[in-house]
């Protein structure tokens, strides 16, 4: 009788892909770079690298917040609202009271605090009242943004307090060319540190593994003795903190505090997290994949400009990438299930 089940080696694609899609992302980034570089040789420059670094440094911090939420089985669409509230709020606060104006770090601590405070709205509704995460964060997004425009301010502020002003021009690298200077802010260092911190949290702490456990099966997590509600409170407070810091990074980098920015840009970050192999159904995802996802999105947006594609197409492209990421997950899950079926058949 001809055996029906083929040899049960791991699929070659699986090995390339790595546990969280990292392999595919690295290949995509390399191929995209080669293509764009072939079309426009000015791509191969330090400038490109610094541009992508600048574009990624705040998004990667936002992405860490979203990553944690999605691993736990939720979704967050309020992070940008929290970010701009915190960033803009600190500029308004220090501008009007003068408190902590001399030190940028006071500004960041304040932003983090505001983030935690706003995150507690999500935590209360999700962990306390057990409401669905998408609806809660959609609601808080509206509340937070509306409250900011009504009570904090709605004007663009060009004057920064001394401390943040200094930080905003503190560059780690500068590349000069005929087209002008391209720079990378020193804030890239705390951004990298935050990624490392989140990675350690997710991999080596009981709390971090509990986040994966809840995302895998919340009821099982409860039975295994994890404190599900407590972990959720932590998740949304911490996500709020990261969003506050990322918002402050954004406001610092652009050197113009505009309350109408960020909200509406959630797509880029969520797409990056999903492309990074994070399962939209919860329970799976990694910091390395997410960082690569953020870099890929930044690279694509940068390349579209180089290739002369109108800026209006950027959003459509990122939306398409999000759908591709989700479809890839669904398809690979189906292939895996077939694979498991084969295993069962062979052992029977």
């Amino acid at each position: 009788m001809r055996p029906l089940a083929p040899a049960l080696r791991p699929l070659p694609l699986d090995r390339l892909r790595g546990p969280n899609n990292e392999g595919v992302l690295v290949v995509s980034i390399v191929v995209l770079s080669l293509v764009v570089g072939a079309v426009d040789s000015s791509f191969w420059s330090v400038r490109t690298l610094l541009n992508i670094g600048s574009a990624s440094l705040e998004n990667v911090v936002f992405a860490m917040a979203v990553l944690i939420v999605i691993i736990s089985g939720g979704i967050d669409v309020s992070f940008m609202a929290i970010g701009i509230f915190a960033g803009y709020g600190v500029i308004v606060l220090t501008g009007s009271t003068g408190f902590g104006a001399s030190s940028a770090w006071v500004g960041f601590v304040l932003a983090a605090g505001i983030g935690v405070l706003l995150g507690s709205l999500n935590a209360a509704a999700i962990a306390g009242l057990r409401l669905p995460t998408l609806i809660v964060t959609l609601g808080t997004q509206g509340i937070i943004r509306g409250a900011m425009l009504a009570y904090v301010g709605s004007k663009v502020i060009p004057n920064y307090p001394q401390g943040l002003d200094r930080l905003s021009t503190d560059y780690l690298f500068t590349a000069s060319s005929s087209a002008g200077d391209t720079r990378l802010n020193i804030l890239i260092i705390p951004a990298v540190l935050i990624c490392l911190l989140v990675s350690l949290l997710l991999r080596y702490t009981t709390l971090g593994r509990g986040i994966y456990a809840i995302g895998g099966d919340a009821e099982s997590a409860r039975r295994a003795g994890f404190r599900v509600a407590g972990t959720q409170v932590f998740i949304y407070l911490f996500a709020g903190l990261l969003a506050g810091v990322a918002g402050m990074m954004h406001v610092t980098q652009v050197r113009l505090a505009n309350p109408y920015e960020l909200v509406g840009g959630e797509l880029d970050v969520i797409a990056a997290v999903v492309l990074g192999g994070t399962s939209i159904f919860g329970g799976k995802g990694s910091v390395s994949g997410t960082v690569l996802g953020v870099v890929l999105i930044a690279l694509i947006k940068n390349s579209l400009i180089l290739l002369g594609v109108p800026g209006t197409w950027q959003r459509a492209t990122v939306g398409l990438l999000l759908l591709i990421g989700v479809s890839a997950q669904a398809l690979s899950a189906r292939v895996r299930r077939r694979h498991v079926d084969f295993l069962a058949q062979a052992s029977a």
């Binding site: 009981t206 593994r209 509990g210 994966y212 456990a213 995302g215 895998g216 099966d217 009821e219 099982s220 997590a221 039975r223 295994a224 003795g225 994890f226 399962s279 919860g282 329970g283 799976k284």
Partner: peptide, 20 residues
């Protein structure tokens, strides 16, 4: 079974002792 489908066998077996 109340297991975590997304985690490894080793984690499923030993995690609960950690939590406890």
């Amino acid at each position: 079974f109340s297991l975590f489908p997304n985690l490894t066998v080793a984690e499923n077996i030993a995690m609960a002792t950690y939590v406890a």
